[in-house]
Nucleic acid binder design. Structure first.
Lengths: 351, 351
DNA sequence: CCGATGTACTGTATCGATCCAGAACTGGAT
DNA sequence: ATCCAGTTCTGGATCGATACAGTACATCGG
């Protein structure tokens, strides 16, 4: 049988509590006794207080969960997500807290069960659609939740960290307008209920399910509206997924149109890099023949001279972790809007 | 105060156990009573059995830990690691088990504390040097441990999943020999104690700390030895890290030598892709002017026509998770050697 | 009407650790 | 010797849930 505090206590001839103190509150007992306890513990093969017993008693699990949809691999594949996770994990580590990955493959019973039975002190919702039942289940746990996928319209208690998506794309739109672009295409994911790549017709972006896509498109609409370009003139193209090849595939639907748009915007840098690939294959030069812009400023963006909107993913992850680890009571500081900055590089030029 | 099983039991007028059964063993009570219980639970704001209490009682945490060094971001950055994590996470998910990331930034007290206090049912050691004290701490927990970073010479209880590294590189070496290559360079990481990029002189690969690098170099040595090329004729170059730019940087030390090696091998595909970048910048063609080969067969390898050794990272992750979730008692099946296969593509050609 | 079988539920012990009130001891001042 | 403050240690209560033995009651065949 595995040794417990009691086993060690009996062996040394002291009480359970004293052994506990030897590990967790060294100032509560004499150094000699402590040494003796640790020595016998080692001899008995006792490796220190069991985390589960401790968690139960302390009411603290020592971990935070990250809800990911639809697959874990997304979190490991998208460069922006990677940076986010990095910021989150590093902050958690500093607070001696683990990070539990909870992939929500489907919004099914299994997923609910996983959320309900995760030993964690809080949930971070990242790139999960707001309507997932698993999110409701997380709420039901009564633990702190910070949201970074969509603006929590539903619950006043929700914590949020992100950027002003619409303002960011508005700035990008204004940049393109200033360069004289009037005929533009936008490539994004989840613009359509289906997974198919290709042009989509949206009467308005206002009803899109994906928060990020919706807000970013709204920003574009507003920027171009100011310049007299109405929404219906903006070409919107759905990409099958957020990857470079899928961006390239979607870009074909923009570049092979006549007349060709003078600017193509990817709603993420990964998609925009795909657009650059498509340009390359057609012998077109970014910034001259067609302007290209992205979103996020991932590491590869700079080396490809991609104009983009910079938002710090690690910072976002860091803030998310801090909000979870001690949630401020002040409502204002529970809603963190990080700065975003337009970075102009060579991939955009005059129309 | 947060409601518990008891609260609900009192409200309904049944025993704690029955409420527990309502959640965990629905077949043990009548559907009507169950419905009534769940209804009052909801009314009281009880969200279901507390995971910590359950873990303690069941003796199962419902999570497995992945030990990562030196940073989490490595796991999220290296394509091979990403695939590994994917396989692991997917398998864990199917078994209703979470994946806890435990970054071991340094081998310090904090790291030890994290390992000691993680509520998990097992540890997976991935890309962590074997001498880390945190690994000893994990061992001390008495939980199943599966190792995928290095061959566990130390402990007979160790589980392992991986490939026969030496045999795999031997096959790659033989391929190059058959093509007539006699003058080759190998680029790898951790070939040197320092982090500096550049050529290193190793009397023999046998004493390298990094298990993977050591075994792979041994395979090369043996393959070329059979063809009469002695170890000292093989150029070994250290890359500062496992990334494409760092591979490119290291490649310069091979390509700018005179005489130029006829083949350059990257000990990972990421490094090999960097070699291809370096070739491109010099106007050299892979497979004609210089042969290039890699290791792993990451997704990008195929699109770049890279000759490589294929090993399935997801499979490796899957097996790791399965070993952890129910460790076989039979010693033979605790040591899983997965197949690796040489994939010949256009990046290698006659010398 | 008796004993056998089965269902539905209860009560208690247990998991391993931490908290806390207080006991026992220590040493120094009075 | 007495008192007191401080330190060191103890034992019981507690965290929230689950396992399991055991009870009450209904059903059923003979």
């Amino acid at each position: 049988m595995r040794p417990t505090l009691q086993t060690v206590a009996d062996a040394v001839g002291v009480s359970r509590s004293t052994v506990s103190n030897a590990y967790s509150r060294p100032d509560q007992l004499s150094p000699q006794l402590r040494k003796k306890i640790l020595r016998t513990a080692k001899k008995l093969g006792y490796a220190g207080p069991d985390p589960m017993g401790r968690s139960l008693r302390r009411g603290r699990a020592g971990a935070i969960a990250v809800l990911l949809a639809p697959t874990v691999s997304y979190a490991f594949t998208d460069p922006y997500a990677v940076q986010f996770m990095k910021g989150l994990a590093e902050t958690a580590e500093r607070r001696e807290t683990g990070v539990l990955l909870v992939p929500l493959k489907d919004d099914d019973e299994d997923a609910l069960a996983t959320v309900q039975s995760a030993s964690v002190d809080g949930f971070c919702v990242y790139c999960v659609p707001g309507w997932f039942r698993a999110i409701k289940a997380a709420w039901a746990r009564g633990l702190p939740i910070v949201n970074s996928s969509y603006e929590g319209e539903d619950d006043a208690d929700a914590m949020f960290v992100g950027i002003d998506e619409a303002a960011a794309t508005r700035a990008l739109g204004q940049h393109l307008i200033a360069l004289g672009h009037r005929h533009v295409a936008v490539i994004g994911t989840q613009l359509d209920s289906g997974q198919l790549a290709g042009p989509v017709t949206l009467e308005t972006p206002d009803h899109l399910e994906s928060y990020v896509s919706r807000e970013r498109l709204r920003g574009f609409r507003d920027a171009f509206a100011e310049a007299g370009v109405v929404w219906s003139e903006i070409v919107t193209i759905n990409a099958a997924g957020n990857s470079r090849p899928e961006g390239e595939q979607a870009a074909a639907y923009a570049l092979d149109r006549t007349p060709r748009p003078t600017a193509v915007v990817g709603l993420s840098d990964v998609l925009a890099l795909g657009v650059l690939d498509a340009l390359g294959k057609r012998g077109l030069r970014a910034g001259h023949d067609v302007s290209v812009a992205g979103f996020d400023d991932i590491p590869d963006a700079a080396s490809h001279q991609l104009t983009t909107v910079r938002q710090s993913a690690t910072e976002r992850g860091r803030v998310a972790a801090e909000l979870l680890l001690d949630p401020p009571s002040d409502p204002a500081s529970r809603h963190v809007v990080l700065p975003a900055e337009l970075i102009v590089r060579a991939s955009t030029g005059p129309a």
